[in-house]
Design a protein around this nucleic acid. Structure first.
Lengths: 133, 133
DNA sequence: CCCCATACTCTCTTTTTGGTCAGTATAATT
DNA sequence: AATTATACTGACCAAAAAGAGAGTATGGGG
C-alpha cells in the first residue's frame, strides 16, 4: 500500500535469489537481542570499555558479551582498541557500518516501544480464547 | 548526531527500566529470522495458506513454520482463519500490528540489502588480519 | 609477598532449538 | 477399497546455544 520503503526495496533488484539468501543470512546474524542492545548502548555513549558494556547490558554473561563483541568486530560493526597496559584496557566503538545499522534498528525500537502493550494484550486475549474452548 | 529517530526514542520515556526490559523482550521475540521472513512474505501477498507459506519460506521445516505462525498469532501479528472443509484450509494474514512491524523492519532490510557486501568484506579483512599474526 | 583490577579464555554442564518421521481426519477421486 | 490432499500434532534425537565457575597475565599498592 503506502509502504514506500518496502516498495523501494522491492523495486531495487530483480530479486536475485542468491542475493536474497545473503540478505536473509545477514539479517539472521544481526537481528539478535544482544547485538541490538550493544549497538544501542554504543550509540548512546560512543566509546565503551568491556566492563562498562557488561554493566550496561543487564543480564548478559561475560561469555556472551565477549562472543557478541567478537562477532560484531569480525563483521565490521565495531572497532576494538586494545591498550597494552596492566590491568588491560579495551575500548569498543561503532564503525560507520555499525552506526548505519543502529539507524536501521531505530524503527524497530520505536515500534517495540509503542506496541509491547498491544502484544501483551494480544497474548491475554489469546490465552482467554484458548481457555474458553 | 543527526539521528533524529534515535533522538525521538530517547526523548520519549524517562527510560523506565521495567519498560526497557519489556521492550527488549519484545525485540528478542520478534527479531527472529523466520518471523521476519514470514512478515515479509505476508506483506507481499497479503493472504496465504499454510502450504503457500511453506513453499515461499525456503528451508523452513513444517514444525518451525507451525511454531512461528502460532507465536505470531498469539502475539497478535497475524490472524489465522480456519475453513472447516476437507482437506483443511487455513489462511493467514497480517494484522495492523503485524503490518506496523513490517514497516519497522523495512529499514533493516534495506540496510542488509545495501551492506551485506561490506560485511563480507569486513570478514575477509578480519580473517586476513588474524592469519598475519 | 600477596592481593587487586581487567578482559578475557577454557571447560563442563544444562537448556534450548530444530530436524525427521510417523500419525490423524475425512471428503473427493480413481 | 485404496489413494490423495491439507494442515497440522507428537515423539524422539542430535546439535547448538548459553550459563557457571575456574584460570590467566601482570604491574602497582599495601
Amino acid at each position: 500500500m503506502e509502504n514506500s520503503l518496502r516498495k523501494e526495496l522491492r523495486d531495487l533488484p530483480p530479486s536475485d535469489p542468491a542475493v536474497e539468501r545473503l540478505v536473509e543470512e545477514t539479517i539472521g546474524r544481526v537481528a539478535d537481542k544482544w547485538t541490538m542492545l550493544l549497538i544501542e548502548i554504543l550509540t548512546e555513549n560512543e566509546c565503551c570499555r568491556f566492563g562498562e558494556l557488561a554493566r550496561a547490558c543487564t543480564g548478559i554473561s561475560q561469555k556472551m558479551l565477549t562472543q557478541t563483541l567478537r562477532a560484531m568486530e569480525r563483521d565490521g560493526l565495531v572497532t576494538r582498541t586494545v591498550y597494552p597496559v596492566v590491568p588491560p584496557k579495551v575500548e569498543y566503538r561503532l564503525t560507520d557500518l555499525g552506526l548505519g545499522l543502529s539507524k536501521a534498528f531505530c524503527g524497530v525500537w520505536l515500534w517495540a516501544e509503542a506496541n509491547f502493550g498491544a502484544i501483551e494484550q494480544a497474548r491475554k486475549d489469546y490465552a482467554e480464547k484458548q481457555n474458553q474452548k
